[in-house]
């Protein structure tokens, strides 16, 4: 146990070292950094405008009001951008496999994920995060949530769980790189797609979609169910804790990654 803790502490320290170098090298290209961050902001801003203009025409969707949808949109965006900042290194992982830089990671005595993620920390996602925060604040001010301790905790759990789900998906995406380098676009449905379509409460997509996102890829656990609680559609306190269950999603994702690394080591792709 003590050794475990020691290792964890060490790993964390190393990760921070990676992050500081990442930021340092990013700051060599300040313009590029700001523009990319701006781009992140603008892309999500378009999504926001899409919602905004739809609600100028329609008043509710499936009973959800404009500000409730914004609450949903901003929390999902927050979850996504935190996950991206940490784990988007997996996004360019196909390049790492293609150019063979993954080899240099394998010849170092450290966990592979720590090294991959550390070397590709993405501060530029701050643009998206900023957008999410602004919209979130707006939604908080205009929603009749009736904030209390339980609800604040719900939001925090949503962000923790959501970050875990998206990070897990990025991990799966990267693990696919070990098998194929050119079918990866498909995974975007689950990452970018989930961000894009998670802007509306999952309930509007019908029963089947709700089942899928409850039991297969647990988006609904970090979006729909806790949202019902936040917007006072249910009093069931279980909804506060549901988002935390989504963290278990990381287990199969990690297993798949390990499987991928083993495959890489036997095929040398």
């Amino acid at each position: 146990m003590v050794i475990r803790m020691e290792r964890l502490k060490h790993g964390l320290k190393l990760y921070c070292h990676y992050v500081s170098i990442s930021i340092k090298s990013m700051m060599q290209y300040k313009t590029s950094f700001f523009l990319t961050a701006l781009g992140q902001f603008l892309v999500s801003f378009n999504v926001f405008l899409g919602i905004h203009f739809m609600f100028l025409r329609f008043h509710t969707v499936n009973g959800f009001t404009y500000s409730e949808v914004l609450l949903c949109f901003s929390i999902v965006l927050l979850e996504f951008s935190v996950a991206e900042m940490i784990a988007r290194g997996f996004d360019t992982f196909s390049q790492m496999v293609r150019t063979g830089s993954f080899d240099t990671i394998l010849v170092r005595p450290r966990n592979e994920i720590l090294q991959v993620l550390g070397s590709k920390f993405e501060l530029t996602r701050i643009g998206r995060m900023l957008q999410a925060t602004i919209v979130f604040l707006y939604a908080v001010l205009h929603c009749n949530v009736g904030w209390n301790f339980a609800k604040v905790m719900t939001v925090i759990f949503m962000i923790v769980g959501g970050t875990a789900v998206f990070s897990g998906l990025f991990t799966v995406y990267a693990a696919f790189c070990f098998f194929t380098l050119d079918g990866l676009e498909f995974m975007n449905v689950f990452t970018d797609g989930a961000r894009e379509f998670g802007k509306y409460p999952i309930g509007i997509y019908g029963k089947k979609m709700l089942l899928f996102t409850t039991f297969v890829i647990p988006y609904a656990l970090v979006q729909y169910y806790p949202l019902l609680y936040l917007t006072n559609r249910t009093d069931d306190v279980i909804n506060i804790l549901i988002p935390l269950c989504a963290v278990f999603f990381l287990i199969p994702c990690y297993a798949f990654w390990k499987f991928g690394v083993r495959h890489y080591k036997s095929s040398g792709s």
């Binding site: 340092k24 990013m26 063979g100 830089s101 240099t104 394998l106 010849v107 170092r108 005595p109």
Partner: peptide
């Protein structure tokens, strides 16, 4: 194993490009 070996891949870099 790898804590005890050193590897140089002539066509790849292990140095950070910008720092």
């Amino acid at each position: 194993h790898v804590s005890n070996i050193g590897v140089v891949f002539g066509q790849r870099s292990q140095l950070w490009w910008d720092v």
